[in-house]
Design a protein around this nucleic acid. Sequence first.
DNA 1: GATCATAGTCGTCTGCCTGACGATAAACAC
DNA 2: GTGTTTATCGTCAGGCAGACGACTATGATC
Lengths: 252, 252
Amino acid sequence: MPYDPSAFPPFAVTVDLVVLTVRRHALCALAVRRGEPPFQGRWALPGGFVRPDEDLAQAAARELGEETGLCAHDPAAPAQANGAHLEQLATYGDPKRDPRMRVVSVAHLALAPDLPAPRAGGDANSARWAPVEELLQRGGYGRDGEQAAPLAFDHAQIVSDGVERARSKIEYSSLATAFCPTEFTVGELRRVYEAVWGVALDPRNFHRKVTGTPGFLVPTGGTTTRQGGRPAQLFRAGGATLLNPPMLRPEV
Amino acid sequence: MPYDPSAFPPFAVTVDLVVLTVRRHALCALAVRRGEPPFQGRWALPGGFVRPDEDLAQAAARELGEETGLCAHDPAAPAQANGAHLEQLATYGDPKRDPRMRVVSVAHLALAPDLPAPRAGGDANSARWAPVEELLQRGGYGRDGEQAAPLAFDHAQIVSDGVERARSKIEYSSLATAFCPTEFTVGELRRVYEAVWGVALDPRNFHRKVTGTPGFLVPTGGTTTRQGGRPAQLFRAGGATLLNPPMLRPEV
DNA sequence: GATCATAGTCGTCTGCCTGACGATAAACAC
DNA sequence: GTGTTTATCGTCAGGCAGACGACTATGATC
């Protein structure tokens, strides 16, 4: 195995982002419209080249900020001031995934609360939150009746992997709180789980479970009545990152 | 975000391998001695450049074959004929991780049964199975009394991530069987778990658990007495890849 | 050959967690 | 007030895991 750095094959390295949020009870991903070939006019994941002096995580955080205005918070820092969770997802390097040249893309997964409206260069028509169902389904129709063409490149696969990662990770970590604003109710957290997993959960058992898991939730003392009905306690995310025992999603 | 493929920054892309096995009740990783600067003479992970027409998984499988003679089996194929489990681990791209140039390394994790003896270009002194404890510990001593210098590059971090992935993945998947030969006993499987997790498990509860989990183990009908004591039933890995319920490792 | 050591396998018991679901509480709409 | 909605507390039965006793089948040792 000769290791000759002067004769390395030429690669381009990019980061692509699967930015997930929960809107109107549905798990949505950020999609941007491609302005140039290949796949011109098609929806794709936000992303771009890694700069020569940039770490992969830095590049992903920069792209996230450019596309959404969110700032990724360090996983070590529990504070979550309008910051999204950001983690590396996987790397995609099929030689033919980009018809122009050899591009290796390091995909990242971001989980964000609902608040931000998409913006990409100020052009509202070139970025949108698309329900992941719609992005992954065999040619469904978009919200505007617009035919949903498949995502560009191998981005459908990347979205699929990102969604599966998110679905599995909220089982054994407290990451579901990344979809919630700083303060939230148990009901709002439950609706996050329901949207991400696509199932209905028993509100009573869910309440018992999350309030009984040490370090998951910290009551702030306040209450709210955002959803109608009896006012609910407000909570913040606790310090725990790993849930023990985990929140297993119902089978079948 | 302009996307100009003709002006991409120059990157080299490599694959590095964390090849894990269980030898003498210890979790070991394959290490090779570097023959050239930087880090000449230091231990490192096996790996090499991704070739221009190669997928990342192909490159990893090729390197695995070159270093160990193992052939990675497709995850879809349940047969495991002297093949190791191979999966992508994570990608490391710190601008300064290689002093010579910008190298992005897509690390892969391989889990193999004990059988193979290390070989790297026929030089027995340039490859070895090192207990991961030794590779990660604060400068311990190797088996020969040789001072264990830290691994080259960021390979200690990669090994650490790979070990953690393996530890966590045998909890909820049947991957522990990848450390075993085609036919194995419940006791051998238990010793795998004990070595990977570094804990002692109750033989009776372990037996009940693994034989009771549907799809995990398939009895072959044979028995063996490899370990002394009463002969044990032989099993093969069952078709299930995800264990339900999982084998949670004891806390603390 | 009797005894011992070693490993494997089957049971039992208890506590904890979960899913199913009844009941109560506190808001809003009419 | 009545009905609706959401939140929260309680109860109960079943399942699973940890602790551990008991028995089995081999090789080693006396």
